[in-house]
Structure formats: structure tokens, C-alpha cells
């Protein structure tokens, strides 16, 4: 019996119109990540890593090919359906923490949960922040935290709703080695806890090595795909 991947892309191509012509950002990329699995997407700058992640998160639409979250094809979904998908099933983490500056640490995380389940009044947010070592900072605004602490809050916000897929774009890009390792530990630990698929875009070989597999992109095409072999 074939296991359904938590997230998969099938023959996805992405082309942008630019002044004077077109640019192929992704060319016939296929990738699948099982639930509880993790994959690192690596490659030089401008090779299409972030675009691939945006396509998987429904933030961009591929020019060609299919993107599936579980068994739902998202490339044909409308904006509202995509928003609902992200709200319930996807957790996104970026290089910049993108925390809302007027919300406290607890509220930033609670927002992630409120979007998925407005009536949820459980202590889940506190628990996660406690696990992430932020229990003493619940009522602080993001401006009052260090870079590493902010990124940990961003991770908490992404996973608080127990998504099926976590997409992280250079989550440690702005962090020092210690904070970087801590954030990756957390991501791996929590995604495994909730049995979510983790896709991490990274330049950092150490981060890539921590994942189950590595997908290397060059000029928009996949040159290695250990993940699909692993999953298949």
C-alpha cells in the first residue's frame, strides 16, 4: 500500500514574466514529504528554493504541475480555500520572524491558534511557549525580545495549531550558531510530536544534515532528491 505524502509537488514549473522576456524559476520539480518526515531544500541563491516553498504553502501558484497537501490538490484552490488551508494545516516560519509588533508573545501565538480555532481557550499556547523556554516572556512585546527568542515565538505560532505541514524558509538565517541549533531542535522535536512534515529551506549544511533528506536545487531544477526516495 502506498503511503500518502503529507505534502508533495509533482512536475511543478514556475515561470515569471520580466521586462524583455520570461524567467524559469522552477523547472519540472517533483518532491514529496511524508508525515513526520523532514527535508532540507538547499541550493545557491536565486535557484528557486523560496519559490518552491511559497508554491507548497499556497502563497504562489505554479505555472505548471500539481501541489498536494495530503490528498488535496491546492494549485486549483481559490484564495479563501488556500487561506483556510494555511489556517488549519500549514505552519510557516520565515527568516524574519514577522511577529506582529502590537501583540504580546502569548497573543502572537494565540493568534495562530485563534485563526484555526477561535473558540479554543486551552492552555496550549502557554504550554508550547513553556516548552520553548519563553514562559517568562509571555506578556512582552516582540521588541523586548532577542532575535533568537523572537524566532522561537515564530516557531511556536506556526506549530500551535498542530499543522500537518511546517514550511520554514531560512528559519535560522539571522541567528547565531547556538540559537540556530536550538531553533532546529525545536522544529524537529515539535513536528515529530505532532507528526507533521517539515520542509526547511536553508543554506546551512549543518541544518540540512539534521533533516531526513536533502533536495538540492540548481537553476530551478532538482538535482538530488533523497526525500522522495526516502518516502517512496
Amino acid at each position: 500500500m502506498t503511503t500518502v505524502a503529507a505534502v508533495s509537488v509533482e512536475s511543478v514549473s514556475m515561470r515569471y514574466d520580466v521586462p524583455g522576456g520570461t524567467v524559469d524559476v522552477l523547472t519540472d520539480v517533483s518532491l514529496a514529504v511524508p508525515a513526520g518526515g523532514s527535508v532540507a531544500v538547499t541550493g545557491p541563491s536565486g535557484c528557486g528554493k523560496s519559490t518552491l516553498l511559497a508554491v507548497m504553502g499556497g502563497l504562489d501558484r505554479p505555472t505548471r504541475g500539481r501541489v498536494l497537501v495530503g490528498d488535496r490538490q491546492i494549485s486549483d484552490m481559490g484564495a479563501t480555500e488556500l487561506a483556510d488551508l494555511r489556517r488549519h494545516h500549514l505552519g510557516l516560519v520565515f527568516q524574519a520572524d514577522n511577529l506582529l509588533p502590537f501583540l504580546t508573545v502569548l497573543e502572537n501565538v494565540a493568534l495562530g491558534l485563534a485563526l484555526a480555532d477561535p473558540d479554543n481557550e486551552s492552555d496550549r499556547c502557554r504550554d508550547i511557549l513553556d516548552r520553548l523556554g519563553l514562559a517568562a516572556h509571555l506578556d512582552k512585546l516582540p521588541d523586548q525580545l532577542s532575535g533568537g527568542q523572537r524566532q522561537r515565538v515564530a516557531v511556536a505560532r506556526a506549530i500551535v495549531k498542530a499543522p500537518t505541514v511546517v514550511l520554514a524558509d531560512e528559519p535560522t538565517g539571522a541567528l547565531d550558531a547556538a540559537n540556530s541549533a536550538a531553533v532546529i531542535d525545536l522544529l524537529l522535536m515539535i513536528t515529530r510530536d505532532v507528526d507533521a512534515a517539515l520542509v526547511v529551506v536553508t543554506h546551512d549544511p549543518d541544518v540540512a544534515m539534521r533533516m531526513d533528506s536533502v533536495a538540492a536545487l540548481r537553476d530551478g531544477a532538482l538535482v538530488t532528491d533523497e526525500a522522495s526516495a526516502h518516502a517512496g
Binding site: L111, A114, E121
Partner: peptide, 20 residues
């Protein structure tokens, strides 16, 4: 009262208006 956020739109608006 925390940890209740309220409805996302109302919760964001109230906090944004209050703190900004």
C-alpha cells in the same frame, strides 16, 4: 482575558488600536 484571543479580526483590531 488571556489566553483567549477573541475572533481574529476583532482581536487584532482592538489590540492594534489600543497599542498603536
Amino acid at each position: 482575558t488571556a489566553p483567549r484571543f477573541g475572533s481574529p479580526v476583532s482581536g487584532i483590531l482592538r489590540r492594534s488600536l489600543r497599542r498603536r
